[in-house]
Simulated assay, not measured.
Amino acid sequence: MARVIVDVMPKEEILDPQGQAIAGALGRLGFAGVSSVRQGKRFELEVDGSVSDEELGKIAEGLLANTVIENWTVTRVQQA
């Protein structure tokens, strides 16, 4: 078995109102120095060795991300 992380983030040109709200709240709570926040999604999948990187890309692109407004990355995590 392997752990796979799929990170999905809004594309840079897409407005991120949730990120903006978080950035504003940080300032109001006294946390200085944070100029921008982008909020995304993280998915953790447990897969067996038969699942290829190509299949993982199809899963990310076809189900986990809205590719019109989001970018995604797939990372296989080494397990001890």
Rank of each mutant, 00 (worst) to 15 (best):
E13A: 12
I14K: 12
D16K: 00
P17K: 03
P17Q: 09
P17D: 12
Q18M: 07
G19T: 08
G19W: 05
Q20H: 04
Q20D: 15
Q20R: 11
A21S: 13
A21D: 03
I22T: 14
I22C: 01
A23N: 11
G24C: 02
G24W: 01
G24E: 01
A25G: 04
A25L: 04
A25M: 05
A25H: 06
A25Q: 08
L26Q: 03
G27H: 12
R28L: 11
R28Q: 13
L29E: 06
G30R: 11
G30W: 09
G30K: 11
G30F: 05
F31N: 09
F31C: 07
A32N: 14
A32V: 12
G33Q: 13
G33A: 07
V34L: 13
V34Q: 09
V34R: 10
S35Y: 12
S35M: 11
S36Q: 15
S36I: 08
S36E: 15
V37Q: 04
V37K: 03
V37T: 09
V37S: 01
R38C: 09
Q39L: 13
Q39A: 10
Q39I: 14
Q39F: 06
G40R: 05
G40I: 05
G40K: 04
K41R: 14
K41E: 09
F43T: 00
E44F: 00
L45E: 00
L45A: 11
L45D: 00
L45T: 00
L45G: 05
E46Q: 13
E46F: 01
V47L: 08
V47I: 14
D48N: 04
D48G: 08
G49C: 08
S50I: 06
S50K: 13
